[in-house]
Amino acid sequence: MEKNSRENNTADIASRRDFLRKAGTYTAASLTGTAMLLSPKPSKATANVSWAEHFQKHYRLMTEEEKAEAIERLEKRYSEEFGKKVSVDGSTAIDGVLFGYALNIQKCIGCRRCVKACVAENNQSRGKEQEIEWIRVLRLEKGNFSEEDRDKGGYPDDYGIQVGGNAYKPAGVVLEGQHYYEPDKVPEKDAFYLPMQCMQCEKPPCVKVCPVRTTYRDPDGIVVIDYNWCIGCRMCIGACPYWARRFNWGEPDLPKEDMNPVTHYLGNRPRMKGVVEKCTFCIQRTRKGRWTACVEVCPVGARKMGNLLDPDSDVRKVLATKKVFRLRADLNTYPKFFYFMD
């Protein structure tokens, strides 16, 4: 099951009864929450945030000493909460590096190993209540002409993304896409796949709309978030044309044993409820010269990344030799995430 259970809930055709049932669950959950607050021992990851952490400055405005202090504070808290030695990295962008990414849609088989690897690497919330994934793989139907569909109004009964289609007269060609798919085997014969994640735009609309500058573009081109400064207004979610940002609706559910202890302040450190998160090109890895988790795990080598300023990097080679496109180029966001075909 790749589905985000919370998303899935709402994607269902919500009947009245379903709503009432859900409301009941929420109320029950609220009562548990209240009980949790009263119990002396914090059971959730971010329950004992210190005053110092609560009143710290925006990360970018901190002096070096303040940054070191903040990081030490976090390392101590995370280590206690997760029962293991957790490191929080604060390494800055390397000079002369601008990260770029290229994804081969011809090779992608839709297996979603990247999604799984991303969740494991980046400490996203998991479990029934709230499952957060930074990568979503869209399954797009191949454009076969089907005589049968011709008189069905051009659309299948299921809902999803209308990629092609027509305005008035059904032509019979159905190009629907969606990210909820559960095949027995991938790749499927009649489909191709288009994974989406944060495009690390050069002109990110999310950065522009943030009222407190909590999200910003670092010099290596990665758009980052100071989770401790985010006020949770979700303007960035509204502004993102790629649906790349996720919100921690409740306290993230991150099991101790699965937590990845190698973290970065602006990347995969455990988040708290009420803040936004998204793909950071695995900042904790890439700034140390490693591949992102998704590049590393891809079984077909569809994912390439590297330094856009280096002519010998994988991504530059792709740009030079392949047919490349970006999503929603009309919006002038200048993504550094390219799609290509052989």
Partner: peptide
């Protein structure tokens, strides 16, 4: 109070419909 303690998960909002 309930929303503060539990987060916005007590609302009907989600990543698709966040406003």
């Amino acid at each position: 109070y309930v929303q503060l303690v539990n987060g916005m998960i007590v609302t009907g909002l989600n990543d698709q419909i966040s406003w």
